[in-house]
Design a protein around this nucleic acid. Structure first.
Lengths: 326, 326
DNA sequence: CTGTTAGCGCCTTCAG
DNA sequence: CTGAAGGCGCTAACAG
């Protein structure tokens, strides 16, 4: 592997000059530049990235932390990585299996200068713990959180959920069930606010049995399916905070001979691949743009630039698990 | 950030001694070691990975190339990454969108010493093109290929498929349809051999219309669904080479009011998450072990070790899309 | 067993 | 505008 010294020799200049043309930094005469360029060409010079990283203390890679391979994650990751590549960054994936220690290890990579910034799809440790790492570089997340040490490209779940519930109402549904995630999560809080307002405004009673919180992405959809089968007060529609859980729910009740929309309306959330396959009516809230924004934030921080973010929008994707009952 | 020099000073030894305890290389007296260790503790020393990488010319990271974030990929990636981490390696994901140029760029990372080895889930370029990069480091893949410059942790699709077909036969199915992938792929060839033998042995006619090849992971399942709906000579069972395509197929025929297993038996392949959600009968062929083996091969190559691989096994996962018709 | 020394490849002052 | 020189943090001979 030729180095700048080799280039310098064959170009008949000093290595500093070569370095200058490489970094486009400082003055280089046209002739020198030309000589250097053709010398590089001639001997097939390729800059040693390792040396550069070492020298600059920067890796041009971003860590992407997620608890596990999730269905929802596909589109997000793809866009995030494409954007990163476009701006000259690599992406390191860390799958934590919801193991706090593993998440810490990933976070530590930034401390060790192994990555320049971090994106967290879904955290495992408390924010308080994560916060400590923000001194080593920028962090962004998908969860909604309003603190200044972290960026959140969040979608307004209050408005989005309200819109979805109104849609269900207009389709003739009256007995609502809600499946929400982690109650600490600001998205969950926003949804909670939306649904309380909604029930109040429409004069609809809220059945506590069917206000389900803290469901995780593992197999809670199945458990909820069982709960629904056994329940005496079945809601006529269930609004989930994630397609994946909704899919598990349907999958489970189908095993027992029930069906959506015949026996219960189901509304997913995410417009993920699985929702298409299983004909789930769902809510699209421009995941792609969130992924873009999440990277752009990190990029802006890292490079002191100010590239604009994209504005998010919502749309209800009508498929088969919600019907008009009026 | 303290360096080994700082450690050396506070421990009252030379930096080489510090380096020795760090790398566990060469002799260090117990006392020196203890002094160094406590000095590191005291000043909060963390090795600079960038410097190490630069110095050794090695990044301890493996590139993982895939066309996109596929459903099937989840389990594989998870195990691959866990194994990698266990052995002190990072994983860099490259999503190529089936763009040859992007794949080349990823391959190039090894030339530029950005990664030490490469795993290819599904290639986009021809093997001939990829082969050139094997001079820069080890490459392994999931596809079956028998050449010495690349390792393939392949599952024996000949036996696996034969086993699956026999199972279907025993359940009473007689008119078979087969959906296979890329015909260049050795896995496809193995399956082709298996199915020909199977049809011959059982005296079953093979309907050319239902020997489908070259189907890609995008949305061919849907197209096949339409084909099936329109066809006059419908097979009574369709064996797919991937759960995902099978899922798309079922999804599409359901839209038109058909169902599996009532109207057609469906056999998936992979035992992926989606197959569980959609109650697909499928074939499990220990993806986890393949992921493990794929990494281990690279590790062995890179470190001149000889860790044993795991043996692969097959199992038919009985769910709902195949029934006993006898 | 330990210290000295010489790089790894690149970038960045600092003189000229 | 250009060359010389120093340094980033660490490892690996090489003497002692």
């Amino acid at each position: 592997m030729p180095t700048i010294i080799d280039v310098a020799k064959t170009a008949g200049v000093s290595k500093s000059t070569v370095s200058r043309v490489l970094t486009d930094n400082g003055y280089v005469s046209k002739e020198s530049r030309k000589k250097v360029l053709s010398a590089m060409e001639e001997i097939g010079y390729i800059p040693n990235i390792l040396a550069r990283q070492f020298q600059s203390g920067v890796t041009k890679t971003i860590g992407f932390i997620a608890p596990s391979y999730m269905n929802t994650m596909g589109k997000f990751l793809q866009v995030f990585m494409e954007t990163a590549k476009k701006y000259g960054y690599f992406v390191n994936l860390y799958l934590t299996s919801e193991d706090k220690q593993k998440e810490i290890e990933a976070l530590n990579q930034m401390k060790f200068k192994q990555i320049d910034g971090i994106f967290i799809l879904t955290r495992t440790n408390e924010w308080e713990v994560i916060k400590k790492f923000s001194q080593y570089g920028p962090i962004s997340t998908w969860n909604r959180i309003e603190e200044d040490w972290i960026y959140s490209s969040y979608f307004d779940h209050y408005e989005g959920y309200l819109k979805a519930l109104n849609y269900l109402y207009n389709q003739g549904y009256r007995q609502f069930g809600h499946v929400l995630g982690n109650s600490q999560n600001l998205n969950t809080k926003a949804r909670l606010k939306a649904l309380h307002e909604f029930h109040q405004n429409k004069g609809l009673k809220l059945d506590d049995e069917w206000l389900i919180q803290e469901s995780s992405l593992y197999d809670d959809g199945k458990l909820i399916g069982e709960k629904w089968i056994d329940s005496k007060s079945k809601p006529d529609v269930l609004a989930f905070y994630s397609d994946y859980i909704a899919a598990q729910f349907i999958s489970r009740i189908e095993e027992k001979g029930f069906k959506s929309p015949e026996n219960i309306g189901v509304l997913g959330f995410d417009n993920s691949e699985i929702s298409e396959l299983m004909h789930l009516t769902t809510v699209d809230y421009s995941i792609e743009k969130q992924a873009y924004n999440s990277f752009i934030y990190l990029y802006n921080q890292l490079n002191e630039e100010n590239i604009a973010e994209k504005k998010l929008t919502t749309k209800i994707i009508k498929r088969k698990t919600i019907v008009n009952r009026t």
